[in-house]
């Protein structure tokens, strides 16, 4: 335990003292603030939304607009977090966790100290997760402060609860990417190889997954020239299932339901259609319903993270320290 905490504190200090960590932190902050109040016009859009009459009670989540509203030419904070910031932060923090130590010749010296071997990998993983948590906390707090100051709106208690849930979910999501990067850093010796491997997976899920899902759907549930409703539903259903293999999609759905309870994702609509036959269910989801909806998503991301970490852990523990 003491060994793990020593590794943890050292790694945490490294993340915040190294240029890599500092640049990463600045990037996350700048992009987030820009997406919210930059010249993109997100703030104007929020103001406009606030002034329109409340539809289906959606206006009661005005504070959350800060995180989900996009501007003219920049996507929303949530989009950046989902697609770019959290995956990149996780990958960058973990990409040389183990092979970096091997290459610099510090691993054998480290392992010759009286600590259990898993103290190294546990401490590093924990330090990465805490770094992600600190970055996300700072970012969310800064955006909230902007909300207080510029728009003069304060969050309701439910909004705070939703934000906290979103905060926890994004840390879990970050842990997934961190685990992925660490897995490759255990398996590959050159840092370039491990970095490209995790970036490749991120790029696939980020840019090509929707295309892959569409292709799968068209193959498994082909549509005629003028698709009937059942055909269309089946096709969309397959497409959604396929794209849920992507952690980006899972987190995207979960965070949208959390932060924009008045909106409906395609998946939700489909689910509601099957459940009640209704085409559209008016009114935002309550917190309880939200949790019910996103619970499978969270469990899947958590499970994937645990799986990745377990594989790295076992591999690292069984690895032989060779003379070269």
């Amino acid at each position: 335990m003491q060994g793990m905490m020593t590794v943890f504190y050292k790694e945490l200090a490294d993340h915040f003292n190294s240029w890599r960590g500092i640049i990463l932190f600045i990037t996350v902050l700048l992009v987030s603030i820009f997406a919210t109040i930059g010249p993109s016009g997100a703030l104007e859009n929020i103001r406009a939304q606030l002034e329109t009459p409340v539809q289906y009670g959606a206006g009661q989540y005005a504070f959350l607009y800060l995180f989900t509203t996009s501007g003219e030419d920049l996507p929303s904070f949530l989009w950046f977090i989902t697609r770019f910031l959290v995956p990149i932060v996780g990958i960058v923090l973990g990409l040389d966790a183990i092979n970096g130590e091997k290459n610099s010749g510090t691993l054998s010296r480290l392992l010759a100290q009286p600590i259990y071997r898993d103290a190294v990998i546990n401490g590093k993983f924990l330090a990465g997760v805490v770094t992600i948590a600190i970055m996300l906390t700072t970012t969310i707090l800064i955006i909230s402060a902007i909300g207080f100051n510029v728009l003069g709106i304060a969050p309701s208690s439910e909004e705070i609860a939703r934000l906290l849930l979103f905060w926890g979910t994004s840390i879990l999501y970050g842990a997934f990417w961190l685990g992925l990067a660490m897995l490759f850093s255990v398996y590959f010796r050159p840092v370039a190889t491990s970095a490209i491997s995790s970036l490749g997976i991120w790029m696939f899920f980020s840019f090509f997954m929707s295309m892959a899902a569409r292709l799968t759907a068209n193959m498994l549930a082909p549509m005629s020239q003028t698709p009937t409703t059942p055909e269309l539903l089946k096709n969309v259903g397959v497409q959604i299932t396929a794209s849920r293999f992507s952690p980006i999609m899972l987190f995207g759905e979960a965070s949208t339901v959390l932060l924009a309870p008045g909106e409906r994702t395609a998946a939700e609509m489909l689910q509601l259609y099957h459940a009640s036959g209704a085409r559209w269910m008016p009114g935002p989801l309550t917190l309880g319903q939200t949790l019910l909806t996103i619970w499978p998503h969270l469990a899947t991301i958590g499970g994937l993270t645990a799986l990745l970490f377990a594989i790295s852990y076992i591999r690292f523990m069984r690895e032989e320290i060779r003379s070269t």
Binding site: Q2, G3, G105, T106, L110, P114, S323
Partner: peptide, 29 residues
């Protein structure tokens, strides 16, 4: 009870000499 200096010994290049040693000391409790 055993100290080990591996061949081609490495340290954390970004950290100071004393920090590197302090890390070892802390790992030894």
């Amino acid at each position: 009870i055993t100290g080990y200096v591996p061949e081609r010994v490495g340290f954390y290049d970004d950290l100071t000499a004393s920090y590197n040693l302090a890390y070892t000391a802390r790992l030894n409790g």
